[in-house]
């Protein structure tokens, strides 16, 4: 499973290596490490954000090992979404039940609408909506966009997709 973790390290040499050590020991695959040396906490510690993949059964061992190494784990959570795209909808977006349009994406379980901005120039005029979709993978994003295209055809909405998806 893919997880994200926020840590706080003491501002002394060697702490980052200590923090990463359990991921090597328990065969975690580190996707990204962001080491915020310039953003010390009020306690003088340095925040670090990790994204990694690891077997669910080994998370507790990693956490215990970090504790043993005197590394503070501030937060740990499942990082489900790895793909993000922006899409515009043009037409009678609201009258054609925007809630239903969003729900058709959300109900997939693998993609969600996470941002929405709407412009409605007049009652008779077509509206425009910006939505941001996140999905658990490339294939899932393709499925979500296919659903949106189908909804667009049914509700006579112009669906404007990006030329490329963005990795989160």
């Amino acid at each position: 499973m893919r997880l994200s973790m926020d840590l706080e390290l003491q501002d002394v040499p060697g702490q980052l290596i200590l923090a990463l050590e359990p991921f090597r020991l328990y065969k975690g695959n580190i996707i990204s490490v962001v080491h915020h040396r310039d953003r010390k906490t009020p306690r003088g510690t340095i925040p670090v954000q990790l994204v990694f993949e690891i077997s669910g059964s080994r998370i507790e061992q990693v956490k215990n090992h970090l504790k043993k190494n005197n590394i503070s784990v501030v937060r740990i959570g499942e990082d489900r979404f790895v793909e993000e795209v922006s899409v515009l909808l043009v037409g009678h977006v609201v009258d054609s039940d925007l809630g239903d349009t969003i729900n058709q994406i959300d109900s997939t379980g693998f993609a969600e609408v996470v941002d929405l901005c709407l412009k409605m120039p007049g009652i008779e005029d077509p509206s425009s909506a910006y939505i941001k979709i996140r999905a658990t993978g490339k294939e899932e994003m393709s499925k979500a966009l296919a659903i949106l295209r189908e909804v667009g055809v049914q509700k006579d909405l112009l669906v404007i997709e990006p030329i490329e998806a963005e990795m989160l």
Partner: peptide
């Protein structure tokens, strides 16, 4: 069918 509003929404992002 492209509207001025859709272009503005795109530009803002």
């Amino acid at each position: 069918d492209i509207t001025t509003e859709s272009l503005a929404l795109a530009r803002d992002r």
